[in-house]
């Protein structure tokens, strides 16, 4: 069992003076898995990553990598690879020297280290650039060197700290695909930090959503989008309309909204995804008034005022626009509402 778990946090807390950056987190990451820490800035996701790297040591709790307790062990004495946001390539060494640095430091002969580095550089598509200085490479090439440098030592875990934030918006889709391919090809355990939910959904096996130093929810991308466990997760992953109301006898009621909803009676909050709200001009069922209608190229976006909330609705281009001020009736499928509180 233990050899299946690559990384384990047991009740890990990190304080900076009085401030709590990470608040008693426990989780485990399986070998070969790619897990993303996702959350707004200041939620503790980067600190969690640095706790795995050993660039921070926990105030309390245990961090295990490959079954070994490394809680009080320096970064240099763990076997991790890390790709930094700024790439952090050594400017006074060429590409080959950058990649061969790790193996050499860990005691390999210069020739062996260079051979290893050359091999990795070839596999990653950087053949012929060995003698270049980092300053002579494009941003994308620099990023690949950073990745090559991180995986050359076959680390127990590969860490990515917002690796795409310095990449051109258009290239991001391509580069994140490359990262995912690489992780699968080498069978690496990877932990990835980002604040971009779309990026997280695209690259992860599982996502850890963090909020104020705690884990809000862990799950597959689909879990999180379709079954958010809290209003925060619902709102952070994709767009969500959060509506408060009362549940009784299996129905959720808020003003003129009345939907079937399982679960205990009493106060409740549901999340409605904008694309699940249908609109037809008219007065039947729950109604609302269109406040604005925005053309977004791929779809229309409506702001609708209702008796229970301000709603955001999103409709495909195939439907006709509706002029502001129009009364509309809302068609909400029974499967659309997700209870989040």
């Amino acid at each position: 069992m233990t050899d299946e778990i690559a990384i384990e946090f047991v009740d890990v807390t990190k304080n900076y003076g009085a401030a709590v950056a990470v608040d008693s987190i426990s989780l485990s990451i399986a070998k070969g898995e790619m897990v993303t820490f996702l959350g707004p800035s200041g939620c503790g996701k980067t600190t969690s990553l640095r706790l795995i790297a050993g660039l921070e040591l926990p105030t309390s709790g245990i961090v295990r990598i490959a079954g070994r307790d490394v809680s009080q062990r320096a970064a240099s004495e763990r076997n991790v690879g890390m790709v930094f946001q700024s790439y952090a390539l050594f400017p006074h060494m060429n590409v080959l020297e950058n990649v061969a640095y790790g193996p050499m430091i860990r005691g390999e002969a210069k020739a062996t280290a260079r051979a290893r580095a050359t091999e990795i550089l070839e596999q990653i598509g950087l053949k012929g650039l060995s003698e270049r200085l980092p300053s002579e490479l494009s941003g994308g090439q620099q990023q690949r060197v950073a990745v090559a440098r991180a995986i050359v030592q076959q680390p127990d875990v590969l860490l990515f700290d917002e690796p795409l934030s310095n990449v051109d918006a258009k290239l991001r889709r391509k580069v994140r695909g490359e990262i995912r391919d690489l992780q699968k090809r080498f069978g690496l355990t990877a932990v990835y930090v980002t604040h971009d939910q779309e990026e997280a959904l695209a690259v992860s096996d599982r996502i850890v959503v963090m909020q104020a130093g705690k884990i809000a929810q862990i799950g597959t991308p689909r879990d999180l989008y379709e079954r958010p466990a809290s209003p925060f997760v619902a709102d952070f992953i994709g767009d969500a309309n959060l509506i408060s109301g009362q549940v009784s006898k299996g129905r959720f009621v808020s003003a003129d909204l009345d939907l079937p909803l399982a679960g205990a009676d009493g106060q409740a909050q549901i999340s409605l995804r904008p694309e699940r709200i249908g609109l037809t001009p008219g007065d039947a069922g729950p109604v609302g008034t269109v406040r604005s209608c925005t053309y977004l190229g791929s779809r229309w976006e409506f702001e609708i005022e209702t008796g229970f909330a301000e709603l955001l609705a999103s409709r495909p281009m195939t439907e006709a626009p509706i002029a502001p001020g129009t009364r509309v009736s809302l068609n909400i499928p029974d499967t659309a509402p997700i209870r989040v509180a």
């Binding site: 790297a53 050993g54 240099s76 952090a88 430091i105």
Partner: peptide, 22 residues
């Protein structure tokens, strides 16, 4: 940028080696 030193550390270099080589 201090991440260069952190990179060196995650690659297995202790403080002394990082200081001297980076």
């Amino acid at each position: 940028d201090r991440s260069m030193e952190e990179a060196s550390q995650t690659m297995g270099a202790g403080g002394g080696v990082t200081l001297r080589r980076i």
